[in-house]
Simulated scan of single mutants.
Amino acid sequence: MNETFEFPEGLLGFEDLRELTLTPLDLPFNATFYELQSPRGEVGFLAIDPFKLVPEYSVHIEATIQDKLSVESSEDVILLTLVTLKQSLETSTTNLKAPLLLNLKSKKALQYIQQDPTLSVKHPLKGDA
């Protein structure tokens, strides 16, 4: 799946970046990774399925956000979190506080900042990191 998504509001720190292509990656790690790449390849991000790391992770998506993404069914939306790469994947972290919501049907996406103070912006990819 190489899917291109429109990010009308951009990403935190990259507000002008309005289009990213999502590509699954096959990495030797106990999680599912994706690459998000700008159209000309000048900017790229590593993203992960946070539910593989934190099975109890949850996000309450408000009706206004669902409207922005043109969500008709929850099955149409996938949720990923951005990874901050360190020296290795084992020492890298992910941002659980600001997940990416991607509508597979409408191809609209956004970064959603949760107000939950218990969520970390630097959650380890590996429990003992």
Rank of each mutant, 00 (worst) to 15 (best):
V83W: 00
L22Y: 07
I78E: 03
S58L: 09
G41A: 06
A31W: 04
L110W: 02
E6M: 12
P28D: 15
N30W: 10
S73H: 15
F45I: 07
D49W: 09
G41T: 04
L11I: 10
N103C: 01
P55F: 01
F14I: 08
G127H: 14
Y112F: 07
K105D: 06
Y112T: 03
V121P: 06
L11H: 04
F7D: 00
F51P: 00
N95D: 10
K126E: 11
D16M: 11
S38M: 07
T81E: 07
S106Q: 07
L100Y: 00
L69Y: 03
L82P: 03
A109Y: 01
K107L: 12
D116S: 10
L125S: 06
Q111C: 06
F51W: 06
V43M: 12
F14Q: 00
L80D: 00
G41S: 03
Y112I: 04
L96T: 04
E75D: 13
L119C: 07
S88H: 08
P28I: 12
E9D: 12
K122L: 10
E75G: 03
Q66M: 09
V83N: 02
R40N: 14
V71D: 05
L17H: 01
S120R: 14
D128I: 12
A129D: 08
K126I: 10
K105A: 08
I48M: 05
I78V: 13
A129T: 09
Y57E: 03
T93W: 02
T64G: 00
Q115E: 15
L80R: 02
T21H: 08
N30I: 13
L89D: 05
E6L: 14
Y112V: 02
L85D: 01
L36S: 00
L25D: 04
L110I: 10
P99K: 10
V59N: 03
P28V: 12
E42Q: 13
L79V: 15
I48P: 00
K122Q: 14
Q37C: 13
E75Y: 07
P124H: 07
Q87A: 13
L82A: 03
L17Y: 02
D116F: 09
P124W: 07
E9V: 09
G13N: 09
P8F: 08
K122Y: 10
L110T: 11
A63H: 13
Y34P: 01
E62Y: 11
K97A: 10
L101R: 05
L100F: 00
S120L: 14
S70P: 04
P124L: 09
T64H: 15
D16E: 15
D67M: 10
L82N: 04
V71F: 07
P39Y: 02
T32E: 05
P39D: 00
I48R: 05
L104D: 00
D76T: 12
L20Q: 02
G10T: 12
F51H: 01
A31T: 09
A47T: 11
L101P: 01
E19C: 10
D16F: 08
N30D: 15
I61V: 15
G127W: 13
T81Y: 01
G41Y: 02
L11E: 01
S92Y: 05
T84M: 10
I48S: 06
E19M: 11
K126Q: 13
E35C: 08
N103L: 06
A63T: 14
F29V: 05
D26E: 15
N2M: 12
